[in-house]
């Protein structure tokens, strides 16, 4: 039985620098958003995470992803 899932990862703004805009990655079932964020290698110390969405819905990092999900990661924007 194939328990591999495909996740589309989208990065925005500063997260794209020296990275990518969109990529499709394969994972074993049960992977969390946090695991995928770690794999992107984005610098969440310099650029903390702001909006985090799966398929256009807000989630938190513990969210377990499913096959075909689109994960969108935006850096936090807080200046005035």
């Amino acid at each position: 039985m194939d328990n591999t899932i495909e996740i589309t990862v989208k990065l925005f703004a500063q997260y794209r620098e020296n990275k990518f805009i969109v990529q499709k990655w394969n994972y074993p079932d049960g992977i969390s958003a946090k695991d995928v964020i770690t794999d992107t290698g984005i610098d969440i110390v310099q650029f903390p995470i702001g909006i985090l969405m799966v398929n256009g819905r807000h989630i938190d990092e513990k969210h377990i992803l499913k096959d075909g999900d689109v994960l969108a990661i935006f850096p936090k924007v807080g200046g005035g």
Binding site: A13, Q14, Q46, F47, P48, I49, G50, I51, L52, D60, P75, K76, V77, G78, G79
Partner: peptide, 12 residues
């Protein structure tokens, strides 16, 4: 928009 407190990318 802000799941956690603390500043954002503007600091950098």
């Amino acid at each position: 928009v802000y799941q956690k407190g603390g500043p954002g990318a503007e600091v950098s």
